[in-house]
Design a protein around this nucleic acid. Structure first.
Lengths: 100, 100
DNA sequence: CAAAAGTACTTTGTTGTTCAAAGTTAAATA
DNA sequence: TATTTAACTTTGAACAACAAAGTACTTTTG
């Protein structure tokens, strides 16, 4: 039985992007600073991973204000949710195989 | 709730090593050429990923002969099995969270 | 017996990824 | 006016991934 490596999504191979996506799928929106604190990242590093997910159109950005402070929120797009689901399915299959 | 990124094992972040480990845990031994064909890799690339897993002591090597042909077999070590199990558990937790 | 092919690498060199740190812009607060 | 905060972008260094070519040794084929 041939294993199809292409079931896995390169965009989610990095564990930070995997976590970001996990948070965004579970929470429907999360802001920059909360993500930064949650994942314990420098802002430059977080920004670049977010940009990578944005480039794939897996997440969307919403710029608002809270009081008078700027607040950037990130949301998983439908495309992103679908891709993430598939990726998790591939992982689930991998895990299931181990249990046979 | 803070997410601990360190539950994930860097050695298994790469999908090729994830697949190699998956095959070795499920099959208790697999040879070089079968792995190469299964994962559709150049021999240099496969060798370097195997070397990375060997360096972590997650796999062991057994050199034998089949008939008169050299045959190199790879096995998951106990350490490797334990580490892999932990990694899959971390992934399982991630997946479970999505289902709440 | 010489040439070709197979096994299992190692080496080389290019390209890609990841990251921290510093720099940037613009508004808000002290 | 100076500092702080938010959310980046840029830079540069370190490391990872990869194909392709080279290597050593053996076996098979013509």
């Amino acid at each position: 039985m041939k294993i199809s490596l292409d079931q896995f999504d390169k965009a989610f191979e990095n564990r930070i992007r995997l976590q970001i996506m996990s948070v965004l799928v579970a929470n429907e929106s999360y802001d920059f600073n909360s993500l930064k604190e949650l994942l314990n990242l420098t802002d430059g590093n977080l920004a670049s991973h977010l940009k990578a997910l944005e480039k794939e159109e897996y997440i969307q950005v919403e710029k608002t204000f809270i009081g008078r402070k700027p607040n950037t929120r990130y949301l998983a797009s439908e495309k992103g949710r679908a891709a993430f689901k598939l990726h998790l399915l591939a992982l689930e299959n991998l895990i299931k195989q181990q249990k046979l």
